[in-house]
Each structure stands twice: as C-alpha cells, then as structure tokens.
C-alpha cells in the first residue's frame, strides 16, 4: 500500500501590519482630546475646522462606549451614549458656556474648559463609586476611565456643536441661536447617536474596532449636514451653512462607502470559512 503521506500544511505566518489608523484606545483618546480641546478654545475658527473637532470628540466617545460596553451591557449600550451627551455633556456644556468669558488671552477663550474638567472629574468619581464592591460593584475593568472619557467627550462635542451654530461659546448667542431655536434637541440626539450607534449596530463576535469607528465618523457627517442646514438661518450665516453641508456630504459619502466595503470584505471571513452553518 503506497501510503502517500500528504505534505504537512505550511505553518501559518501571521503578519502583524501596524496600521497608523486607528491608533490604540489610549492614543486615540489623547489625540482626540488634544485636538478637540485646541479647537474649542479658539471660537473664532471656521465652522469646518470645528466640525473636525466634533468628529474627533465623537469618535473618542464611540470608542469609550465600545470599551465600556464590551463587558455585557446589552440594552445599556444606547443608554450610555445618551448619558454621555444628554446627561453629563449637557450639564458640562452649560457650566462651560457660563465660564466662557473668563480666561481670555487674545483669540483663546480657555474658560469653557472648566465645564470639560468638571464633568471629567464627575465621571471619574461616579465610575469609582459604580465599581466599588461595597456599593454597586459593576466589576467592569477601567469603568472609571470610561465614564471620565464619556463625560469629557460629551461636553466637548456639545460645546463644539453649539459653537458651530452660534459662532462662539458665549452664553447669550448660544442661548438665542442654539437653545431657544430648538437646534439643541437635534444636537443632543444626533451626538448621542454618533456615540452609541456604532457599537450598538456592530456588536457581536466578529466586531472589529476599525469598522465600528467608521460608523461614528459617518454619523458625524450627517450631523455636519444638519448643523449646516441649521446655520443657514442662525448666526452662522449662509456661507458657513453651505460649507458645512458640503463638508458633511463628503465625510458621509467617504465613510459610508468605506464602511460598506469593509463590511462586505470582512463578512467573507465568516461565510467563506463556513463558520456559521445552515441547518440541513
């Protein structure tokens, strides 16, 4: 019997390609926080640059939602996004706008950072209390950091979006153009959507961080379009509005196409290997 031994299968070579995007969670947090803070303290910047700050703040928030919810929050994933923006984000933005006239240095208005800092501290303390074994005992690793980042990212996002609508972070113009007109409702709901929807929609065994974060940027594009339409009639003005709409459409198209392509490409690794079998 000419028993022909099949050649041993070649050893799998795992090539780890270090991609520059997305950076790991800590780096993404630091990069986004620095960019968003730098943009928020210069209220005179054009709206499109503020929109880039919004995108970074929301991606940071989406990443925090992802790493906090990974430990089985289930129906709590949307709630944590609402909590970040409408809960701590709104209170922080209120405090920040009240302090925005302090800390002037040329074009820099550093007073708004009081709100961001205060909400980061509040988030950290509530994270510690929620993780304490004698109190709520959530036992989620790094919940403290997650809650802190959610508070800071939510506040930054709301402040930047109010700044796009009103052209400044001062209380009076924001109240007149952003809050009393009702745009604030759209800002709050869409920003929380950009934070929780990526992980809520993509969660599962084959969830990939890069693909999840693309959804967040895509929703930020939609936010830019809506903020552009709103700035047509508010203090932002016609030119700002049209710029924002064009910017939003480009961001949305690029990241939507990129997300769908990634989803099609990565779904092959499931269907192609037959991991999920149909019942015969």
């Amino acid at each position: 019997m000419g028993h022909h031994m099949p050649p041993p299968p070649p050893e799998e070579v795992v090539v780890v390609v270090k991609k520059w995007w997305p950076p790991d969670e800590t780096r993404l947090g630091i990069i986004s926080a620095v960019i968003a803070v730098l943009i928020v303290i210069f209220p005179g910047l054009p709206a499109v640059i503020k929109a880039i700050g919004v995108i970074f703040a929301l991606v940071w928030g989406a990443d925090s939602v992802r790493k906090t919810s990974k430990y089985g929050l289930g129906t709590g994933v949307p709630s944590i996004g609402y909590f970040a923006v409408i809960g701590y984000g709104m209170v922080g933005a209120f405090t920040g706008m009240a302090f925005s006239r302090y800390g002037h240095l040329g074009p820099v208005e550093a007073g708004v950072l009081v709100g961001v800092l205060f909400m980061a501290i509040t988030g950290y303390i509530s994270g510690i209390l929620a993780n304490t074994p004698k109190l709520i005992a959530m036992k989620i690793p790094r919940l403290e950091r997650g809650m802190m980042e959610l508070g800071a990212a939510g506040t930054l996002a709301v402040l930047l979006e109010c700044s796009i609508i009103a052209g400044t972070t001062r209380w009076e113009p924001v109240l007149e153009n952003g809050i009393n007109t009702g745009v604030i409702a759209v800002i709050l709901i869409l920003s929380s959507l950009a934070m929780f929807h990526p992980y809520n929609a993509c969660l599962g065994p084959d969830e990939i961080r890069e693909r999840t974060l693309k959804v967040s940027v895509e929703i930020s594009g939609l936010i830019c379009i809506i903020l552009g339409i709103a700035s047509l009639v508010t203090l932002g003005g016609m030119a700002t509005g049209i710029q924002m709409i064009i910017f939003g459409v480009i961001v949305w198209l690029v990241f939507y196409v990129s997300f769908v392509r990634a989803a099609i490409r990565e779904s092959h690794s499931v269907t192609g290997t037959g991991l999920i079998k149909t019942i015969e």
Partner: peptide, 28 residues
C-alpha cells in the same frame, strides 16, 4: 446603595450648575 451613589452624582451635577449660576452670566 444606588441612592447613595446617585446622591454623590447629583451633588456634583448640582455644584456644576450652581457654579455656572454664580458667574452671573446666566440670564434668562
């Protein structure tokens, strides 16, 4: 237990709002 944690969280939110009110900017 949750009420205790909520007390602390509301206290911090309340302090943030009161701080904002002390600036005198907030008028309506």
């Amino acid at each position: 237990k949750a009420l205790l944690v909520c007390f602390v969280a509301s206290l911090l939110c309340g302090i943030a709002i009161v701080l904002a009110l002390t600036t005198g900017v907030i008028t309506g």
